[in-house]
Design a protein around this nucleic acid. Structure first.
Length: 224
DNA sequence: AACCCGAACGGTGTGTGGCG
DNA sequence: CGCCACACACCGTTCGGGTT
């Protein structure tokens, strides 16, 4: 990593953390603490408002911000591919992704605008079914704490079962989408494949989660 | 290719100061 | 008082760029 890149990284770390020690920075950047001290000193000497306190760590004063920075081609490639994957979901997700790409394109310098058109990475079949509208609705329900009613059909079932769910999150498992939620029928966490949800409705009913019903609790139980 | 030079870095040791 | 973390100095090594 170039030194300039490392100095930029240090500022980024300091911006996103309340308190940062030289040891932590040294581990993250794979350099010695001694080098961290030198870098911090150099940043401070160029006017970056960093406060260091022995026995405490470093903090970046709140009034400091970086000027807008331009993406490099590798970053742009990642962003464009990501946006194209999201656009493949359809619905409002596609509209949003297209709008974001358009904004990005208009903000780029001419050279990068040309480069971005050369990115030939597409995701047309990233998702054969368009879940954009369903994900939009689930996302809205999660934010507004609204109950969702779904008709869910398991492979062994002949008819779909109607359930009321407190939606907690939507996950993509490399080949399929699922919604994780608190199932009021089973009174437990359940995840539902979106391709097995035959009908879904946002109910005019809100929910309040107990601690044992929250997504953090679910994640803590499944992630070792 | 060999050499020189400066920048950057790591290691080590010592001092200082906050905190529990 | 001990621990932790920053501050500083000194020295040796590595690396890249420039020169001969």
């Amino acid at each position: 990593m170039r030194r300039a890149d490392r100095l930029f990284q240090i500022i980024q770390f300091l911006r996103t953390r309340r308190l940062t020690t030289a040891k932590w920075l040294a581990e993250k950047l794979e350099i010695s603490e001694r080098t961290v001290y030198r870098d911090i000193q150099d940043l401070m000497s160029t006017g970056v408002p960093i406060d260091g306190e022995a026995g405490v760590g470093y903090v970046l004063r709140k009034d400091y911000d970086l000027p807008p920075l331009m993406f490099d081609l590798d970053e742009l490639t990642t962003l464009v591919l990501g946006a194209r994957m999201v656009a493949a979901l359809g619905g409002k997700m596609k509209t949003n992704a297209d709008r974001a790409l358009s904004k990005l394109n208009s903000a780029l310098p001419k050279k990068l605008q040309e480069d971005i058109n050369k990115i030939k990475l597409y995701a047309p079949s990233f998702n054969r079914l368009h879940y954009g509208a369903m994900i939009d609705l689930i996302n809205q329900a999660i934010i507004q704490h609204q109950v969702i009613s779904i008709d869910y059909q398991k492979p062994q079932d002949v008819v779909a079962e109607r359930r009321k769910i407190y939606p907690l999150g939507v996950f993509f498992w490399s080949d399929r989408w699922t919604m994780v939620g608190w199932c009021t029928t089973r009174n437990d966490f359940r995840h539902f494949r979106l391709d097995r949800i035959l009908e879904y409705t946002l109910l005019d009913e809100t929910f309040k989660l107990e601690k044992e019903q929250r997504l953090e609790t679910y994640l803590a139980s499944v992630i070792v």
